[in-house]
Structures are given as C-alpha cells and as structure tokens.
C-alpha cells in the first residue's frame, strides 16, 4: 500500500500541520465568534421578548386587579348609597305619615267636639220649640193659652218616656 511508504509522510505532515493551524486560527478568531455572536444575538432577542411579554402580562394583571378592586368598591359604595337613601326615604315618609295622622286625629277630634256642641245646642232648643209649638197648637185647638209650666211638664214627660222607650 502506498500509504505505508515513508516517502509520503513528510510532505503530508507538513501540509497537514500548516492547513490545520491556519484553519484553527481562522475558526478560533474569525468564524466561530461570528457564528456564536449570531446565535447569542438571537437568544438574547428571544429572551428579551419573553421577558417583555412576562412584564406586560404582569402589568396587565395589576391593571385587571386594580380594575376589579375599583369595581368592587364602587359596587359597595353604590349599595351603601341605595341603603342609606332607602332608609332616609322610609324615615321621611313615616314621619310625614305620623304628622298627617296626628293632624287628622286633631281635626277629627275638633270636628267631633263641634258636632257634640251643635248637637247639645240643638237638643237644648228642641224642648223650647216643642213647648212653643205645643202651646200654639193647644191655643189654636182649645182657644185658650195653656199654662207654660203645664206644657213643659207634659213635654218633658213625653220626651223622657219616649226617650226611654226608644233606647
């Protein structure tokens, strides 16, 4: 085999060493750092984007929770306001009802008193009228004027007896 001929060793060793060293220097100083920087750049870009996405998500979460807190607190406030207003209105209407009822009761009482007085007055006049009417009627029937005391006694007896019967 020609590979085992020592004559082929030296020239190949020389050129192998030369090309290997040159290629090593090119790779180490030029090619590999460049590829590494491209890969690094991409990795950094991806990481940065992921970071930003996480950051934005956190911000969104904060905003959502703030919004929900605001919503909840305003809901509570609205309920408080509704309750307060309702209580105030109920109290108001009760107060008015009470006032109205009191005034009405007063008016009713005054009216009743007036009615009672009028009735009393009317009743006190009834006997006199009855006596006068009876005296006039008796005078027209008999031609003589009856004694007013007799008439009054007779009316009193009739009214009292009638009143007892009717009760």
């Amino acid at each position: 085999m020609p590979q085992f001929d020592p004559a082929v060793f030296a020239p190949q060793l020389f050129w192998l060493a030369l090309t290997f060293i040159v290629l090593y220097v090119l790779m180490a100083k030029l090619v590999l750092p460049r590829i590494a920087s491209v890969l690094d750049e991409r990795q950094q870009r991806i990481d940065a984007n992921l970071d930003r996405a996480a950051h934005l998500k956190a911000e969104a979460n904060v905003a959502v929770s703030a919004y929900e807190r605001a919503l909840t607190s305003s809901r509570y406030r609205a309920q408080d306001m509704i309750k307060e207003t309702t209580e105030r209105l109920i109290a108001e209407s009760e107060r008015r009802n009470r006032e109205l009822a009191a005034r009405l009761a007063e008016q009713i009482k005054a009216g009743e008193a007036r009615i009672g007085a009028a009735r009393q007055a009317a009743l006190s006049h009834v006997r006199e009228i009855a006596a006068e009417v009876s005296a006039v009627a008796a005078a027209n029937l008999t031609g003589e004027v009856p004694d007013p005391a007799v008439v009054e006694a007779a009316i009193a007896a009739a009214v009292d007896g009638h009143g007892e019967q009717s009760r």
């Binding site: 004559a7 082929v8 030296a10 020239p11 190949q12 020389f14 050129w15 192998l16 090309t19 040159v22 290629l23 090119l26 790779m27 030029l30 090619v31 460049r34 590829i35």
Partner: peptide
C-alpha cells in the same frame, strides 16, 4: 521533502471551503 501534492491540495481545499462556507 515538503512538496505540494494532491493530498495538500485537498487539505487546502477543505480549509478554504469550510472557511468560506462558514463565513
């Protein structure tokens, strides 16, 4: 003897191709 041979030519070609390709 350090003659430039067909073997050396292929070594140089390998170095050149890989450098050019990767650059």
């Amino acid at each position: 003897d350090i003659s430039f041979t067909n073997s050396a030519l292929m070594m140089v070609a390998a170095a050149v191709i890989s450098t050019v390709f990767l650059t």
